[in-house]
Design a protein around this nucleic acid. Structure first.
Lengths: 196, 196
DNA sequence: TCCTTGCTTTAGTGATCGCTACAGAAAAAT
DNA sequence: ATTTTTCTGTAGCGATCACTAAAGCAAGGA
């Protein structure tokens, strides 16, 4: 039929992801992207549509790779307490790794962003994570591991805030040790279950 | 001598501050600034130097006004515990007020910013706040209100992360009630002082 | 071998970026 | 009233923004 694409679409998307992760949506220019991806603008537009759709694909890919630890922890662990603790400890490791940008892309890539759609896209992902934490805690209330009157929404908001604070700290250069200390301290705020 | 300035420098600076606070350093264009300030570019450059120096003055002004609650709480309260608790509760109120942008300017205005100098400027302010919290806790260790082995640096990092998480939550639309719940939950992680 | 098809490169679109030259206007000093 | 000085508005600087028209090139089908 015709000539085939001369670059690996997946590798190019990974390069775009990391560039967006480091600099954010609007601060990343198409020129920066094409340089990082090793292609020319027309190839980018042919393969990914435009800058926004490339960003959306990058975020999707982030959620399925670097950001997948949270969903994994929430489903794998037997109790809400262990699940949340593992989310925080995994976040500490993930956010401080030296082989990719620090912090969380979902949290930091659209902070100074004029596009309401892009802002809402990431805010939606953050809300979803918070809702997943709350669901996991609700399950524990239903199972009797937490008292019936537990403020599950408040707890979910608190741990979502912790994750966001850890991401900011990581961006500011906090070490794995410091982030783990934050995670441990945050778990000290877990509701005390009084014996019956 | 000569013609006097036709606008109020302080009012113009306040307008610039709020614009930077809302949109961040790089996402705020000079055109946006001049519109918000009600002046033309040459007036801005004559009165404030350039965009970066205007931003620095805006940050300075922010610290002395909207952001002054933290330093006040840390010096006014009698104990570190009360001081940190008041910082968090004041932050909850300040970050969710309807009459100015949500969250903290120092935390959010240079997240997606390519200028290393601007990033470092705000990071320096964040480090200073963290250091002030740590100092206040160190004082309590010296005074015997906290045990000698207390990890004061870890505690300061934790509450700095809480403040940053609250700022992100506020930007995402969290209410005063939700932010206060985060503050209260965070205080539940304060070290337990065992009786001697 | 030649044609068709689609990816590639080059080069440039109008719009906006931070910033400023220039000239007119206004107020204090003479 | 005239001069001096500094602010003000207009208009535009070169650079960069996201994006694309046009033409060259490579590979499968005839």
């Amino acid at each position: 039929m015709a000539r085939r694409r001369g670059f690996d679409r997946d590798e190019a998307l990974e390069s775009a992801l990391r560039t967006f992760w480091q600099h954010g949506y609007e601060a990343t220019s198409v020129a920066t992207l094409t340089t990082a991806m090793g292609i020319n603008p027309p190839s980018l537009y042919a393969a990914f549509g435009d800058k926004r759709r490339l960003f959306e694909e990058s975020v999707q890919r982030y959620q399925e790779t670097y950001g997948a630890f949270a969903a994994r922890a929430l489903t794998d662990e037997p109790t809400a307490r262990e699940a949340v603790e593992r989310v925080l400890r995994d976040a500490a490791h993930e956010y401080s790794r030296a082989d990719h940008p620090h912090g969380c892309m979902i949290i930091s890539a659209a902070v100074n962003c004029e596009s309401a759609e892009v802002v809402e896209l990431l805010r939606g992902f953050r809300e979803a994570t918070k809702a997943a934490i709350r669901q996991r805690i609700d399950d524990d209330v239903s199972a009797g591991r937490l008292p019936p009157g537990t403020d599950t929404d408040g707890l979910a908001t608190f741990y979502a805030a912790i994750i966001q604070g850890m991401s900011t700290q990581a961006r500011d250069g906090a070490s794995l040790r410091e982030l783990l200390a934050v995670a441990d301290r945050a778990m000290a705020a877990w509701p005390v279950v009084t014996a019956t």
